[in-house]
Design a protein around this nucleic acid. Structure first.
Lengths: 337, 337
DNA sequence: CTGAGTTACGTTAGCACTTACGTAACCGCT
DNA sequence: AGCGGTTACGTAAGTGCTAACGTAACTCAG
């Protein structure tokens, strides 16, 4: 190829060509997944999905584009029913862009596709050892030969076919514990200092104090976390329950919670409680269905400013529709002290 | 930056942004150099500059774009006086795009700018050690901080200020000997088997047989070559004289030829001849001015199909306007046998 | 020699951005 | 209260490409 002989000189042209091919590859993956989405929308949609409602300028700054670009795309997305615009109460110039419930539901399912694209792209990028130029060349080869597209399709099938596994704590996954929970907190509340502390020192502050951390994984990809913090002998707090955006609806949350309860029982715990927020309807219903009951008074001395719900686990309240396999690990029911 | 947190997922967007920044950086370099050129034109102009007249589709295939892109750009360049279109004699559908004499002259001077862009981009690319993602991040940092632009400007000054040096053969430069001559041959003639042989085995077929190869370099960048092939004891052929496109007009050709003649004399040679072509007017005038005289008959048993000019060096015919420093190396004038 | 297929390449419409500009709302200062 | 400066963001126009189409010229089998 002539451009390759020009080495770093035609880099602009090569970058652009790769960019377009990547968009095309991502679009193909979306199409295969039955998602009527355009890869160019990803930065905006993903931002709204991860961070929640945002203004045009905020998004533009975050994704490194000009505000007209975001403004124009927002108009298109609004027409397509992906987002709505709600006037900001305190500042009439600003409009909060917000995903529609429908869009949110669609994006909640896209995790496997994103995972596949990420893996395919990473494989292509890693094949070119050494310099950037080598990596680009390898990228171009993989794109031209269709290898990138094939790998993305293959990865998507793998991820979709994979069962959700629950894993105990691993040092090398601590970073995911931090990432997923930070993302979740930034989306729904704010990261309080006590969160920052726990998330960045999980091993020391949770595990070494007799607590547990569980991971939900899909084909080796961490998609959710849950923690049991040891409050006192026999007393555990269920906390840091979060599932990554894009992997909702696969049942990872329920599986994590079931595993956490099983672990609590295996530990011979007497009391298992959690603090949450009324804003988190679906999560509360999950807790209720697995045996947590609402406590009338707020918990005395709560760590969290956001907590306005206090629930305690009562095994006999557990809904009977719990799938059998959730009980697999030898069940040692322990009387509450 | 939000996009960075998306790892390989937003690669398309990042590639595109880098592409645009690189075009902008290149444009800034052209502007600084006083060249009214747009970086987007580079692939087409450079192709025509290196390969000579070409059709729209040929260029499109070579630079990896669609033919409408080239067609539209060609229309613009034609309007701007950069290229002309000449109908192909044998095929009325085709039109040969050709640089105007003016454009050719401008591009002949752009070597230092291209060299600067290449070096700046290479530095940025090399700073990101490891994966492609690291390299991209480093690129983005350098672009955002203005470091890339500053380095390009700095490199341009360095290259422009550097004197032309003439160097003896180095193994590690053999690749440039091959590249520059191959490019030149493809532009003006075709690469004959005897050329391919010599160019890819320079050390063995030139140096080890008692010949010499000289390089012209600008701040470490090889921009021209020249060879003395030993035909018989005392008999040398001047050959493989080529200066890279973009570095014409700096006097590299004359410096190389002077050095080659000096080397011939230092070797105690008796006969120095060359074969060339009537098509290469400026080169012939250079040869004449440094003491080569036209031989009426073609050389018996010439290696080259393209040769229709046969010249022999006669020191006394050398124009007196030769700069003094060209004679610096101890001059041992030898009678012709 | 004819017509089907191929090739060269111009044109058009569209896309994803950009820069440039305009307008309304907000902020801080006198 | 008023006024310059800033901010939010929409609109217009331009750019560099692409996909899709059209047309004329060429090629080659029957």
């Amino acid at each position: 190829m002539f451009l390759h002989s020009q080495a770093e000189l035609a880099l602009g042209s090569r970058f652009k060509a790769i960019s377009e091919s990547l968009y095309a590859a991502a679009n193909a993956a979306y199409r295969d997944a039955g998602a009527d989405i355009d890869a160019h929308w990803f930065p905006v949609l993903r931002y709204l999905h991860v961070k929640g409602p945002a203004t045009v300028t905020e998004i533009a700054a975050a994704i490194g584009q000009t505000h007209p670009a975001v403004s124009q795309l927002a108009a298109k997305l609004r027409k397509g029913g992906w987002i709505t615009r709600r006037a900001d109460a305190s500042d009439a110039r600003r409009g909060m862009l917000e995903l529609t419930a429908d869009a949110e539901r669609k994006l909640d399912k896209l995790g496997p596709v994103w995972c596949a694209i990420r893996r395919g792209a990473r494989a292509a990028a890693l094949r070119g050892q050494g310099s950037l130029i080598d990596a680009l060349t390898s990228f171009e080869n993989d794109i031209a030969s269709g290898r990138l597209a094939a790998e993305i399709a293959h990865e998507r099938e793998r991820v979709l076919a994979a069962p959700i596994e629950i894993h105990p704590f691993r040092e090398e996954w601590a970073v995911h514990f931090d990432r997923i929970n930070t993302e979740w907190l930034e989306r729904w509340f704010v990261v309080e200092p006590v969160d920052r502390e726990t998330l960045s020192n999980a091993k020391k502050l949770v595990i070494d104090r007799g607590g547990r951390i569980l991971f939900a994984a899909l084909d080796g990809e961490v998609i959710g976390t849950c923690a049991l913090l040891k409050e006192a002998p026999g007393v555990y707090e269920l906390s840091k329950m979060a599932v990554e955006t894009g992997f909702r609806g696969l049942g990872a949350g329920r599986r994590l919670l079931e595993a956490a309860i099983a672990e609590f029982e295996r530990l011979g715990g007497t009391t298992l409680f959690l603090e949450s927020s009324k804003r988190l309807g679906p999560a509360l219903r999950l807790y209720e269905s697995l045996g947590f009951v609402h406590h009338p008074a707020p918990r005395p001395g709560s760590h969290y400013a956001r907590a306005d719900v206090y629930m305690v686990y009562e095994p006999e309240k557990r809904a009977s529709r719990t799938p059998a396999r959730a009980r697999e690990p030898a069940l040692r029911v322990v009387e509450r002290g």
